[in-house]
Design a protein around this nucleic acid. Structure first.
Lengths: 138, 138, 138, 138
DNA sequence: GTGGTCTAGACCACC
DNA sequence: GTGGTCTAGACCACG
């Protein structure tokens, strides 16, 4: 199944993290329009989380029009969801970058230091995903 | 006085924002070891915030060893605070960048797109500070 | 419930006394890692104290890494807390003894007199706990 | 001059520490009935402390009848001060020991551990004063 | 239900 | 004047 686990150290609300995972899965193509999303109880068990929390995430996604209920069957990814998830993803990442950069500038941090940090973290992420890919190939 | 105002739209706790401002002021050299920090009541009035909220920020900074109390006189910046604030600032920015990058990669966003966003936001921030400077000159 | 009442005559801040009670309960085994600590409101009611005061004690314990929050559920004793509480207790008692002894020596008090006081107070404390035990048995 | 410096890390009110030093000097014989105590300004300068603070300590000692003012000359140690200071010292040490012991018992600390701590700290203090004595002999 | 934040205001000790 | 403690009560987010 997709949407494996949540980043342990994340202090954001769990329901928000779950909703974002779904959006990312859609943006990345792992979930496609028409696909059924896992039942609330299953996903809750998988994530070791209260079912209410998953339900809330799904509800929010419905409100955003990214999930649609199919009577008696569950929830499926909506038709126009891909584009909207990509845009949402883009804006989320943009917002986080903006906050990092603003904070750095407000505190008089050297531009070069910020750039260096960005490259460092970029390399670190690249290294990790390569590791993941290798593991999957094994 | 230093530490002018808080970003209106920030959703983080006020006391945390205040504490960060102090850290940034120390990291940037606006406050130096031995300097007295503004009295709780004054800063509270300036920020239009309850004194308890400022007190909590100061208390947290004391716990971190960045401020120390001079009995009956107020709070002063501790001796080793500059390095520690610089490191704290660096790690804060690093963490924010890391989260942005991780999120982008986890959701299979194109590397080129992330880089483009970073450059966009970087330019935007630079433009703003230049704009500020220009506004002051005008 | 545990953590019954506070020593009436103690001049230390209430939140500090509460935090110490929790540490002692952990050091003594009455609270074990993973156990939930009583809800802020309940303990406040039990101690006839403002909930904020209890909250502050809990917050300080979190900062020390002895409690950790389980979101929406409350606060639980952290994994490594037992050893750390035992060490904290040991150092608390050591510090108090050291101060007593230093004060005695600085003021040229006779060693024999200090030892005699220690034995006296030791016997007194022992008598009290025996009395308590007896009272319970009765 | 006597009453050299204050223990840096002591969190008790400075005026109380000063008053205690005087009491100890009397109890130990360094100051004798009829001796003049150092002028407020001198002692304040020596201790790097606000003169008001020294004045408060002296005032409290006067209230307790341990110092008497000699018109135009300053303050002298009162006649019956020695016994009373010895008793005060005894009760101070007793109180500190009692608190240490009570805390240990309340937190279910092993009696043997408390005794061991007492012996450790006792030895430590003895070592220090011997070192001091040796230094003086040099 | 849980903890967390924030406000308001009183009171204290210290210098 | 300074910071620190405590109370009271409102409100919010989370599960």
């Amino acid at each position: 199944m997709i949407l494996l686990d949540l980043n342990a150290g994340d202090e954001r609300p769990i329901y928000g993290q779950i909703a974002d995972r779904v959006k990312f899965a859609v943006a990345g193509g792992a979930l496609r329009p028409g696909d059924m999303v896992p039942p609330v109880r299953d996903l809750a068990k998988q994530l070791v989380v209260n079912p209410n929390t998953v339900a809330r995430a799904y509800r929010d996604l419905q409100t955003e029009g990214l999930l649609e209920s199919v009577r008696g069957m569950g929830l499926q990814v909506a038709e126009g969801a891909v584009d909207r998830c990509r845009r949402a993803r883009r804006e989320m990442v943009r917002l986080r970058l903006r906050r990092a950069i603003d904070e750095a500038r407000q505190s008089q941090m050297e531009p070069a230091e910020v750039e260096a940090l960005f490259r460092e973290e970029w390399a670190r992420a690249a290294g990790q995903s390569n590791g993941d890919a290798g593991a999957r190939h094994g």
